[in-house]
Amino acid sequence: MKGLYCQQNDGSDQVKFVIQERNVPSCLNSHQVKVQVKACALSPVDTKLLEDLKLSRDLVPIGREISGVVLQVGPKVTFFRPDDEVVGILPLDADLSGLCDVVLIHEHHLVPKPEKVGWVEAAGAIRDGVQSYTALHSLGRVAAGHTLLVLDGASPFGMMTIQVAHYHGVKVLATALSLQDQQLLEQLRPSVGEHTGEGKARIIGVWDGKVDLVEACMEETGGLGVDLIIDNGVRLYEEDPTGRNMVPHKHDLISVLGVGGHWVTTEHNLQLDPPDSHSLFLRGASLSFLNEDVWVASGSNQGKYLHILRDVVDKLSTGTLRLQMEKPVPFYEAAVSMEMVQARQVRKRLVVQL
């Protein structure tokens, strides 16, 4: 059975994506479910994380966010029956690519797919939904009336976070990296510029050289600072050699935090200098690292994880959450599409329709 796999070149960070044939085991374990895949979303492969978890191998399966139909269940499976429609995320140590026609997955990594939610939409939204819930609730402990700053609000993760936050009555500030991003955020419903609680939120167009992030946030919060920051990368140095000049500097983010505020970062290499730590201390503020894969790396909170998965698809069903994605691509374009995703050349979510 054909699937897409990642092959890492020896001694380099470069990877290539290849189509490989793999056999699907004929016998199911006690709690395994055999799923016929209908759609699979493409997300960048974190080779460093796999290496840290001792999960590196010659061929890493590509495509973990899937939706499909249950074909067969193991003898001890209680959640599903054949012909059920499901959506879920394959674990980090999965042997089969999510782009295979059929995959085997433990029942505790799946939830029922509502009838109103399409295959492509379900697969495309599930990862960003889990990431947003993890950042806002598990780490940020956000509550109604809080003020949230979302960096790169027009990214798939950013837009999902904005929608989840609005649902819970949070005031949202969001940065836009380009004029196109700003226009996209202005069209988002409920709009970033609309808030039923305390006044109107604001889109901060950092693409405009005249706009200062710290001044804009302080103006919006009356000089008190924001309660929660969720970034999509952060600049560690004043002069960034990678050209990420529109990515905020770590000092700016600390400067906009209010007393008792919380910063959730996706920057796994974040380093804080003593003055930065002292500034956090003076604010009584805290910092968390966002790793959405922690749910599948440990089974200690499996119940919470399943609750998050179910809540995401339920809100997709009611229209509370909407997905920004590219047009679905066929399987024969998966390798080329994955190269673009890995190189961060695609702004919207890419989903392969099988």
Results as ranks from 00 to 15, higher is better:
A335M: 08
P114T: 14
V170W: 00
V336S: 09
V142Q: 02
G258I: 03
E292S: 12
Y167W: 13
G118Y: 06
G225Y: 05
V234L: 14
S279Q: 14
G303Y: 12
E292I: 07
Q36L: 12
V35D: 12
Y133N: 11
L173D: 01
P61R: 07
V18N: 14
L185K: 01
S155K: 02
L92V: 10
P328A: 08
V73I: 04
V329Q: 02
E238Q: 15
L49T: 07
K315Q: 15
L149R: 03
Q163S: 04
A176N: 04
A154R: 00
M159S: 06
P274T: 06
P25T: 11
V172K: 02
C6K: 13
K327H: 12
K16W: 13
D293H: 15
Q8T: 04
A335D: 08
L104H: 09
L309V: 07
G319Y: 01
G319C: 03
D58T: 10
L185D: 02
V294H: 04
Q8F: 07
D83C: 11
T221D: 03
V256T: 03
M159T: 01
V329I: 01
L224N: 14
S56K: 14
P44K: 04
Q183A: 08
E198I: 13
V130I: 15
L306A: 09
T175S: 12
G193F: 13
H31M: 10
K38D: 02
G205K: 10
Y332S: 13
G3N: 07
G169H: 06
S255Y: 04
H251S: 15
P82M: 05
I105L: 08
G284P: 00
D212K: 08
E219Q: 10
L179C: 13
G98W: 11
I203V: 12
P330V: 11
D13I: 09
S43R: 02
P25W: 11
P190I: 00
Y305T: 01
L55D: 06
P241K: 14
F157W: 05
S300R: 11
K113V: 14
D227M: 07
V206G: 05
A143E: 15
V120E: 08
L71Y: 12
Q8G: 06
L287N: 01
A174Y: 03
L354F: 13
H109G: 08
Y237N: 10
S67H: 03
A343Y: 10
T161F: 06
E333I: 04
V111H: 03
A144C: 14
D181I: 11
A334M: 09
N245I: 07
Q180I: 13
H146R: 12
R64K: 15
P156N: 05
E220Q: 12
E267C: 15
N301W: 06
W207Q: 01
I204R: 00
K200R: 06
L184F: 03
I126G: 01
V37Y: 00
V117S: 00
G11F: 07
T266Y: 09
L354K: 13
P241F: 11
M246L: 15
S43T: 14
L350E: 02
V294R: 11
W207L: 00
P75S: 10
P248Y: 07
E107R: 06
